[in-house]
Design a protein around this nucleic acid. Structure first.
Length: 319
DNA sequence: AAGTTATGCAACCGCGAGGGA
DNA sequence: ATCCCTCGCGGTTGCATAACT
């Protein structure tokens, strides 16, 4: 009550962002940090609505975004997570911190759906993994539940493979994104590369925040997780998490997410699900996953768990 | 070489949840 | 308790470019 509307439709610019607008937005967030999006356009002097600013930041300008081709491992992760979680792209993206939900969504819609359709023929995975099955009116509830559980079993096994350290070499195979977080070739990419250069110029003038070297990509954190005691590692994780938050408030991290450390970053992030806001969900999911993997061959098979007992069922709000 | 179709990606739209007034 | 604003999410669209005829 009494609040001004989110954005005044009149005079609001739409369409592709120009490099100049990017610079304005980035420099504003550099000074004030992300958040309070409603104030961003007016304070930054942008003729954009707050939504557009937030979207541009989260999907394109935010530091640490990896662009370019998806690796085989990322692809697998997406497929299996999609089977587990459905079209909850934000949740899926939390497992792939360098990818945006929009990127993942696009990749799924453009590449993976086709791929899976080829693999599975006309049945299954036709739209959104098992969730599509759920929406089918042609399958009886019993059939659907059996199929759902089969899908979950398959996805779970595959996710287990993907997350398993000895099997998932893919995590360390993540390629740097062509030396720039802006990997897209062509017209606008060159513009964004220019932005990156300009920003680097700005940042070289700005005092770097002491201690921040990019969450999960510090040599210290990488080394510390490499054989030191558990406590210091946890401390490091906490610190890292805090830094991650701070990073989003500061573009000083920009330089830290270059190609030289994106491998370590992805590895660190993928093994530290606590860093993301869905940590609770991830922990539960992974506990469930690994518990069941550990119990493999014992009495408690997932297929024996009723839907109501299935953590994913609960996570999905029992729907 | 020109026209057409397919593909990929960035951005917009609309809705729901959460929370402040 | 209610209203309504902000934020975040998922679905969809529009445009640029590549591939094909």
């Amino acid at each position: 009550m009494g609040r001004p509307p989110c954005c005044d439709k009149a005079g609001i610019k739409k369409g592709p962002w120009t490099p100049e607008e990017d610079i304005i937005l980035v420099s504003y967030i550099q000074q004030h940090g992300p958040g309070n999006w409603r104030a961003v356009p007016t304070h930054a002097g942008l003729l954009r609505c707050s939504k557009s600013c937030r979207l541009r930041w989260t999907n394109y300008l935010r530091p640490g975004i990896k662009r370019g081709n998806f690796t085989e491992h990322e692809e697998k992760m997406i497929i299996h997570l999609q089977a587990l979680l459905g079209n909850r792209w934000a949740a899926i993206a939390s497992y792939l911190p360098q990818r945006t939900d929009n990127d993942i969504k696009n990749y799924w819609n453009i590449h993976l759906k086709k791929k899976l359709r080829k693999l599975h023929g006309s049945e299954g995975y036709c739209r959104s993994g098992f969730s599509s099955s759920a929406s089918s009116d042609h399958i009886s509830r019993g059939q659907w539940e059996r199929k759902l559980q089969t899908d979950i079993n398959m996805a779970k096994q595959a996710l287990s493979d993907a997350l398993s350290p000895e099997k998932s070499s893919g995590l360390t195979e993540l390629k740097p994104c062509n030396g720039s977080i802006y990997a897209k070739p062509g017209g606008y990419a060159s513009s964004t590369e220019n932005i990156a250069k300009m920003l680097k110029g700005w940042m070289s003038k700005s005092p770097l925040k002491p201690g921040w070297t990019g969450c999960g990509v510090t040599e210290q954190s990488v080394n510390s997780s490499d054989g030191t005691d558990e406590d210091s590692r946890k401390e490091e994780e906490k610190r890292c998490s805090k830094e991650m938050t701070e990073a989003l408030e500061s573009l000083f991290a920009f330089e830290s997410f270059d190609s030289s450390n994106s491998d370590d970053f992805s590895q660190s992030m993928s093994t530290e699900p606590d860093l993301d806001p869905h940590a609770g969900q991830l922990s539960l999911l992974e506990k469930w996953l690994f518990d069941d993997t550990a119990n493999h061959g014992r009495d408690c098979q997932l297929s024996d768990i009723t839907l109501d007992e299935n953590p994913m069922f609960l996570l999905n709000g029992g729907t």
